[in-house]
């Protein structure tokens, strides 16, 4: 009888100890916010271009996590972003939704400076503060900070902003994909060999 009692008490005690432990740690190590949103956000290209229909990358990330938004609405990220998102969220990778634009080569904004009238409209539009200038002064784009989001082109009243593709330099050059070989065996290439072997 006492053995049963001891066993019950021990189990109760253990339960209590672990309960307290778990309760404490759930308070002590509480995770603020939704960490998944951060993870999704970190995979997005952060151009803040709004082509997905959301006002920035983070809102899109939130929509993906909370509202089951499709993951194929990010043209600047392209296929690689879709794949990374699919991998993270464990869903099927789907092709880019052409409705939101097509994947393009990386570009940066360029202001034709002698045409700039200094209206500061592009400065206000730039989500990453990559345009330098003041009212009635010429503006210019800090190329290293420009994400190529396109948002400054539309507000320009004199249309002096161009989106130029980033030039390839020796340092920026990349090895191309090797041409995938003809997947056949040697005898297919030289039918004569096979015939000789047969003979």
């Amino acid at each position: 009888m006492s053995a049963v009692l001891i066993a019950v008490l021990v189990l109760l005690g253990l339960g209590l100890v672990f309960g307290i432990l778990l309760g404490y740690s759930s308070i002590r190590f509480k995770v603020e916010g939704n960490p998944l949103v951060d993870q999704v956000d970190s995979l997005l290209p952060q151009t803040q271009c709004g082509q997905c229909g959301h006002p920035g990358c983070r809102p899109y990330a939130e929509a993906i996590v909370n509202n089951d938004e499709a993951i194929n609405k990010c043209p600047p990220g392209g296929l690689s972003t879709i794949e990374a998102l699919a991998d993270l969220l464990d869903v099927e990778a789907i092709p880019l939704d052409a409705e939101h634009g097509e994947e393009q080569i990386k570009k940066v904004a360029y202001i034709r400076e002698d045409e700039c009238i200094g209206c500061t409209k592009c400065i206000q539009a730039c989500p990453v503060d990559a345009i330098l200038g003041a009212a009635k002064q010429m503006h210019t784009v800090i190329v290293s900070e420009c994400t190529g989001c396109d948002l400054c082109v539309e507000p320009c009243p004199v249309d002096c902003i161009d989106m130029l593709p980033i030039e390839t330099t020796l340092n920026g050059w990349q090895w191309p994909v090797p041409k995938s070989g003809v997947e056949l065996i040697a005898t297919d290439r030289h039918p004569g060999i096979a015939l000789e072997a047969d003979a």
Partner: peptide, 21 residues
């Protein structure tokens, strides 16, 4: 290697853009 370097560079740029944003 080139692709990975490019991705890293893009990631770095994206992080930078996020910080600025």
């Amino acid at each position: 290697k080139a692709e990975i370097r490019k991705e890293d560079e893009e990631q770095r740029k994206a992080d930078h853009a996020r910080i600025r944003f």
